[in-house]
Write a protein that binds this DNA or RNA. Structure first.
Lengths: 116, 116
DNA sequence: GTTCTCGCGCAACCTTTCGTTGCATGTCGC
DNA sequence: GCGACATGCAACGAAAGGTTGCGCGAGAAC
């Protein structure tokens, strides 16, 4: 329950290299496997595999231009991913708050009962 | 830049099984490897390894009680993890909004220039 | 139009991670 | 003491992330 997250999307953005790639595509605009690999500590082939993964879950889509393939972020899908991130975050936040409230209540009772 | 996230923490909560484990520990309170494995689709040994990973990054801590080891979530560290989640989320959100604004500006210009 | 270059995709391979099974140990209840 | 149960450790298999090496097709240079 609660984390009925679309695990496909999560695991796509769970990888640090893929997160950085999305960052680069957002900040620098559309890019190719080669252009991305120049700004990352991995080879073009590794980048290419990650692009395939991101494409499979719809986070990016490609456009062929001559011998190059330009990739860019799918805004709607990324928005969905962000929503999932914040959903999990707020779920955990809520639980943490509730636990804290309960702990404080117990603390108050202890002080009251034992006069400590 | 921007995703200068503490990758240790991210990869810890990046795994779907580990996320569910944290959920269970938050909703049901402290638990053991065995009790968690009963509510998960993996074996006790797998759960045990995940607990080790979560413990290594400080997201949980254990307490020995006889032959059992009770694990529970470290609230401060989880709060830190949640903060990182929402940081990445809002970064991407910002970029998406900015892109959208630019796209709209271009659209307006096109209409103005071409009278379309 | 040949040739040279550059971007890409495919295949083989290595290492780490997630998962399994099997076994030996330690503790609780009787 | 003895059976039952929770753990830990080790060996092994499958998948993911990474690498190198190769061949092909499209642009650029001559």
């Amino acid at each position: 329950m609660s984390t009925t997250v679309d695990d496909e999307l999560w695991s796509a953005i769970g990888d640090p290299t893929r997160r950085t790639m999305i960052d680069l595509l957002l900040s620098d605009g559309p890019g190719t496997a080669t252009s991305l690999s120049r700004r990352l500590p991995v080879t073009r082939q590794a980048v290419s595999k990650h692009l395939a993964v991101l494409g499979r879950v719809g986070l990016i889509h490609a456009e062929s231009a001559g011998r190059e393939r330009h990739y860019q972020v799918d805004e709607a899908q990324l928005a969905r991913a962000v929503a999932q991130l914040s959903a999990v975050g707020s779920t955990w936040d809520d639980r943490l708050r509730r636990i804290k409230r309960i702990a404080e209540a117990i603390e108050r009772n202890r002080h009251h009962d034992e006069g400590e």
